[in-house]
C-alpha cells in the first residue's frame, strides 16, 4: 500500500512547484491569497500556444480546489474570454470531461497537468484557428 498524500500536503507540493517552475510549458499558477491556509483559490495563466489564434495572448484562469481535492478534480474557469469547445461562453467554466488527457480524473493529476492539457487543446488542429474574442475581454 503506497502512502496517500493528503490534500493539504499535495497542495503545498503544487504551490512549491508553481513558485519554482514559473513559465514552464507556458503555464503558471499560484495562490490567490497567500494567507489562505486552506489553499482553496488559485490563479493561473496560460500563454497562448504559437502558430494559433492564441499566439502572444496571456489567458487568466481561476481554479478552486475543494475539500475533496485531489480525489475530485478542481473547478477551473477562464477569466479571459476564449472561444474553445468545452469552455462555457457564459462564465468561462471548463468542462474537464471534454479535455482528453484529464477527462478520466485520477488523484495523481495536478493543476499543472490541467493547464498543460488546456494549452495543448488550444493548439489542437480543430481549435487553433477558431476566431477569438477581443484580447483582454473577460467573463
Amino acid at each position: 500500500m503506497s502512502a496517500k498524500v493528503p490534500r493539504n500536503f499535495r497542495l503545498l507540493e503544487e504551490l512549491e512547484k508553481g513558485e519554482k517552475g514559473l513559465g514552464a510549458d507556458g503555464c503558471s499558477y499560484g495562490l490567490t491569497d497567500g494567507d489562505d491556509v486552506m489553499m482553496s483559490n488559485w490563479n493561473a495563466t496560460i500563454l497562448g500556444p504559437p502558430h494559433s489564434a492564441h499566439e502572444n495572448r496571456i489567458y487568466s484562469l481561476k481554479i478552486y480546489c475543494g475539500a475533496s481535492y485531489p480525489d475530485q478534480p478542481p473547478s477551473v474557469h477562464f477569466i479571459s474570454k476564449i472561444n474553445l469547445p468545452g469552455v462555457s461562453q457564459t462564465n468561462g467554466k471548463v468542462d474537464l470531461s471534454k479535455l482528453g488527457r484529464v477527462s478520466q480524473w485520477n488523484r495523481d493529476f495536478t493543476m499543472e497537468k490541467i493547464l498543460v492539457a488546456l494549452r495543448e487543446y488550444m493548439a489542437h488542429p480543430n481549435c487553433r484557428k477558431l476566431p477569438q474574442p477581443p484580447e483582454g475581454s473577460t467573463y
Partner: peptide, 8 residues
C-alpha cells in the same frame, strides 16, 4: 497536521 511520506 503531520504526514509521513512513503519513504519515511
Amino acid at each position: 497536521e503531520l504526514f509521513l511520506p512513503e519513504d519515511y
